[in-house]
């Protein structure tokens, strides 16, 4: 347990000490919030879908969470290249706990980033129907973050350097983001998109967030929770398998 704690603490400290990183990873979600929020707001309202900001914010919060999370996972590459990974790998502790500490640490940092975006979105007019629902919101954010950190770690354990990072962002993370119903409703989308969205774990994260923020969702929020948990456990176990076989 101490292992998990000290690894978690390390991730948190490194994050809080890196102001450029905090600001940098707020940039893209805020840009999306402003451009889409104000750009599409009136069309959205005309189409009878209600307030676009209310619809968009859960997606943008998720965006901040998943980008930070995937990056936190991929950071394993740096730990390997700058040698710190060896220090953890020669220690008499289980690989499972190392992986768990890293993942929880990365996920915590991502949730903080998501909360920052949420706070900013209150200033552009976003409202929560019930402030107490922030607690279930944290659960959905954390599980989403956990999934993407573990995903990033899995990928990183197979890569030797950061060169593939843009490929991962453009061909994996962005499609998962757009397919999840984050910035447009999936109800009227083509059948193929709807089917794809079902295997995108982020769909359930965002649907769950919409429920807790707005009180409305397309699926049962408990089902969202179960799916998200299931996806998280699977990718964590895959990541652990790959992590154990990785060369430090």
């Amino acid at each position: 347990m101490n292992t998990v704690y000290i690894l978690w603490l390390r991730q948190l400290k490194k994050y809080l000490r890196s102001t450029p990183r905090i600001i940098g990873s707020l940039g893209q979600p805020l840009l999306f919030l402003l451009v889409f929020g104000f750009g599409f707001g009136s069309i959205f309202a005309k189409a009878g879908e209600g307030s676009y900001i209310q619809f968009l914010v859960p997606g943008i919060v998720a965006m901040a969470v998943i980008f930070t999370a995937i990056f936190g996972g991929i950071e394993l590459i740096w730990d390997r290249q700058f040698g710190f990974l060896k220090e953890t790998m020669v220690a008499p502790v289980s690989r499972f706990n190392i992986m768990l500490g890293r993942t929880i640490g990365g996920a915590t940092v991502s949730v903080i980033q998501g909360i920052a975006v949420l706070i900013i979105s209150f200033f552009v007019g976003f409202k929560m129907h019930n402030p107490l629902m922030i607690f279930p919101a944290l659960v959905f954010m954390f599980l989403t973050a956990f999934f993407f950190t573990a995903l990033g770690t899995s990928i990183a354990s197979r890569l030797m350097d950061m060169q593939a990072f843009p490929i991962i962002m453009n061909f994996l993370v962005m499609p998962l983001f757009f397919l999840s119903g984050s910035i447009f409703p999936l109800e009227n989308a083509p059948k193929a998109l709807q089917i794809l969205s079902k295997v995108d774990p982020l769909t359930y994260g965002i649907d769950g967030l919409r429920y807790v923020f707005e009180g409305v969702s397309s699926l049962n929020p408990w089902a969202d929770l179960v799916y998200l948990l299931g996806f998280s456990i699977i990718v964590f176990l895959v990541g652990r398998f790959l992590f154990e076989r990785m060369e430090a």
Partner: peptide, 12 residues
């Protein structure tokens, strides 16, 4: 062990 390559965390 002291590794051939550095193995400290510079941010700590």
């Amino acid at each position: 062990i002291v590794f051939q390559d550095p193995s400290l965390d510079d941010d700590l």
